[in-house]
């Protein structure tokens, strides 16, 4: 953590400037730490919601797969597989937009939109399939919504974590690099100024002594 002291002008003005810089840097660290704390609180809130979202998603998927297996049990695996050959796929559209989050941070917002295709007719023969298949589809759709919510939460968490890492780096840079450099520079300038003061004092004393000696010589010399 060296600082090129030769570039610093050891003047009182420079000392005042350095002290102002130090106060500013400490103020910045303070603000950054407050931001960091706010981000941490926002992150904890997201983390707190995560297990319940995951649990919901797991339960919905379990119910969906349970209903699907029940449909296979009633109609037979072969029939379900056969019906799936011609069933129209459901088109989903994932809309990703931005929303303002903590500290005005831009966080991703995700919305799953099902394109309304299956309203005119069912996607598969109602006579060849049991209602469990419909129930399974409904559960899968609900689970998909939760998966998207989970992805949104995780993306927001990632964003916050990235910003937190940047803030942490900034705090560390100021605390462990900028402030010690300023301190060293202040110390150097103070040392130089003290040295200059001492030299000045000595010089004054020498001059005073020389002036005294000169005055004595002038008095001793007969006119």
């Amino acid at each position: 953590m060296s600082v090129d002291l030769t570039l610093i002008h050891p003047t009182r003005l420079e000392l005042l400037r350095l002290r102002r810089r130090k106060a500013l840097a400490e103020g910045i660290v303070d603000i950054l730490k407050k931001d960091y704390d706010a981000l941490m609180i926002a992150l904890f809130e997201l983390v707190r919601n995560l297990p319940s979202l995951r649990q919901q998603m797991r339960e919905q998927l379990n119910r969906a797969y349970g209903s699907f297996i029940e449909a296979q049990m009633i109609t037979g695996q072969k029939k379900i597989e056969e019906v799936s050959l011609t069933s129209e796929p459901v088109d989903f559209n994932l809309e990703v937009s931005a929303r303002k989050g903590v500290l005005g941070l831009t966080l991703p917002s995700m919305q799953l939109n099902e394109q309304a295709t299956g309203v005119s007719h069912p996607r598969f023969s109602l006579l060849d399939t049991p209602a469990q298949l419909d129930e399974s589809i409904q559960e899968i759709k609900a689970a998909l919504n939760n998966i998207v919510k989970l992805a949104e939460t995780q993306a927001a968490m990632q964003e916050i974590l990235d910003v937190m890492a940047v803030k942490r780096r900034q705090i560390n840079r100021i605390e462990y690099r900028v402030l010690p450099q300023i301190d060293a520079a202040v110390h150097y300038v103070e040392l130089i100024l003290e040295e200059t003061e001492r030299q000045d004092a000595v010089r004054v004393r020498v001059l005073q002594r020389k002036r005294k000696e000169r005055m004595q010589k002038t008095l001793e010399t007969p006119t």
């Binding site: 299956g118 309203v119 069912p122 006579l127 209602a131």
Partner: peptide, 12 residues
């Protein structure tokens, strides 16, 4: 069965 499923699906 068909009527019930259509009702659940919201088919016209």
């Amino acid at each position: 069965k068909i009527i019930f499923r259509c009702k659940t699906m919201g088919l016209e």
